[in-house]
């Protein structure tokens, strides 16, 4: 087999956890893993949507312990290797050790775009454990390119073999992706990756821009199952990149089959762009806030979009789901006391 020119990493069983309200069953994971393995996907990710240790009242409790899901996935794979996501501050080095025992072969250590230094120990541990080790800079739209380069260099200095530009809010446009990937290609010697969300319908366009600018790791999810409007659609990406002349090493029919015969059968709703997920991309809000915002809006009888716009204005970062309820409560309070209350500050 010729060397792959682009490595497609499937995140259905991790980013999709948000859309599934963290309720993946072993059966769903087993069947999806089998399909990904058959299609010859090198790496796919299995974790709570917020990474190892993410099962919580804050983000949603996992129906099945992620370690069991990792084990199930690993047990049916002959070819594919399991990746796990780890957000320092949520997950710990202990969680990573446990995930490796369950079968993980790759770790992606994720921080907010400006906070790479909290990941040093976890990246070092990933290398020590012999894992393929990746640094994941989230909410990449929130910092200028120079800051991105500085933080990516930190990841590389800790030992990351790949550094990702992660468009968690689906807020980047193709020219911005090109600019960011190009800067990293020029300044770093490790491989560069891109993770997109489709809130502005830009996921595929951004992916193409990233690959053309030199990214060699690209994330996608089957039927786009992921937070917000979902991710770049893996099976479509395979077709598009092959047409562009890149070798993905993935079998097109098999990847289409697992998307439609397995994932489409259990996804709770199509990954369409609705008013709220569009506003997430527009105002730069972390995609996994979507379902939490829906719930809060319903509880207080207010417009989801007002909550999201306010969260964007407050520069909320990934993980701050607790802010949603509070913002919703304040909006509801202010709209019922417009004469006595000052606007939210």
């Amino acid at each position: 087999m010729t060397k792959r020119s682009v490595e497609i990493l499937d995140v259905t069983l991790r980013d999709g956890s948000h859309s599934m309200k963290h309720a993946f069953t072993k059966e769903q994971v087993r069947e999806t893993a089998k399909g990904l393995d058959k299609a010859k996907v090198n790496y796919f990710e299995v974790s709570h949507g917020d990474g190892l240790g993410g099962s919580s009242l804050q983000y949603g409790l996992s129906l099945v312990d992620e370690l069991e899901l990792i084990e199930v996935a690993a047990s049916v794979c002959e070819y594919s290797k399991i990746s796990v996501l780890l957000l320092p501050g949520i997950g710990t080095k202990n969680d990573l050790n446990d995930a490796v025992k369950a079968g993980a072969k790759m770790v992606r250590v994720a921080t907010h775009i400006t906070e790479a230094d909290v990941a040093k120990q976890h990246i070092e541990l990933g290398r020590e454990l012999g894992l393929k080790t990746v640094g994941f800079l989230m909410m990449a739209h929130m910092a200028p390119v120079e800051k991105l380069v500085e933080q990516a260099k930190l990841f590389e200095s800790y030992g990351a073999e790949v550094v990702y530009v992660t468009d968690s809010a689906g807020a980047l446009l193709p020219h911005e992706v090109t600019e960011r990937i190009t800067a990293l290609k020029n300044e770093l010697s490790c491989e560069i990756g891109f993770h997109g969300h489709n809130n502005l319908s830009m996921a595929m366009a951004n992916t193409v821009a990233a690959v053309q600018a030199g990214a060699t790791y690209i994330d996608g999810s089957l039927r786009a199952l992921g937070a917000g409007s979902g991710n770049t659609q893996t099976e479509v990406m395979v077709a598009v990149l092959e047409k562009m002349g890149y070798n993905t090493g993935i079998d097109l029919y098999s990847i289409i089959d697992v998307a439609n015969d397995v994932v489409a059968q259990y996804m709770p709703r199509p990954q369409e762009i609705n008013g709220s997920s569009l506003i997430m991309g527009y105002s730069g809000v972390y995609s996994s806030f979507l379902l939490h915002t829906e719930k809060a809006a319903k509880r207080f009888g207010i417009d989801e979009r007002d909550i999201l716009i306010e969260l964007g204005r407050m520069q909320a970062v990934g993980g701050q789901e607790d802010l949603i309820y509070e913002v919703a409560a304040k909006i509801a309070h202010n709209s019922s006391n417009t004469h006595t209350e000052a606007p939210i500050s």
């Binding site: 919580s56 501050g89 907010h112 520069q315 970062v317 607790d322 802010l323």
Partner: peptide, 23 residues
């Protein structure tokens, strides 16, 4: 018990916030 910490780089800086979820 479980604890989560989040760093937010917003300018102007955010005041420390703590949410306590209990069952």
């Amino acid at each position: 018990g479980k604890a989560i910490i989040i760093l937010n780089p917003a300018e102007p800086p955010v005041i420390m916030r703590d949410t306590i979820h209990v069952t």
